[in-house]
């Protein structure tokens, strides 16, 4: 890009025509996110993974408590949540109650993942 160092204004702009591509991509992402959010299919089970290995499967219709890897999980009223965790950031606790298919609670420090699945859903685990 040619510019005059001595008396230039800003070489950067707020908007250029190529930004339309970025905007379209972002709009597509928004549409995809909306699609996922607005298809609220209730899940039936919660799978609990530790370090990528499935350690437990809880049926959401049955109230239960589970302590594992520093986390205390509670199932009640068709929802599951992390009641307490010994991790520093507490993001898993703040995520709150989940019950829709595909919803996930992630505790990265403890490497625990809780995921809601529906009936007979094909598992996609690497």
């Amino acid at each position: 890009m040619s510019h005059n160092k001595k008396n230039r204004k800003s070489t950067y702009s707020l908007f250029r025509i190529w930004d339309v591509i970025v905007i379209v991509v972002v709009l597509l992402l928004v549409a995809l996110a909306l699609y996922f959010t607005l298809s609220p299919e209730k899940g039936s089970r919660a799978e609990v993974y530790v370090s990528g290995e499935k350690k437990a499967e809880l049926v959401l219709s049955k109230d239960a408590e589970l302590e594992l890897n520093g986390l205390k999980l509670i199932v009640s009223g068709g929802k599951i949540w992390v009641h307490s965790s010994d991790c520093p950031d507490k993001i898993c606790e703040k995520t709150g109650k989940i019950y829709k298919k595909g919803q996930t609670i992630v505790c990265l420090p403890n490497q625990v993942i809780v995921r809601i699945v529906g009936k007979g859903e094909v598992e996609a685990i690497s």
Binding site: L29, V30, A33, F36, G52, T104, V106, L108, A124, I125
Partner: peptide
């Protein structure tokens, strides 16, 4: 990579928006 779980790829759609 760390959790060896592909399930969290699902949050990427919200995170990227």
């Amino acid at each position: 990579l760390i959790t060896k779980t592909s399930a969290i790829a699902y949050v990427l759609i919200y995170l990227s928006v």
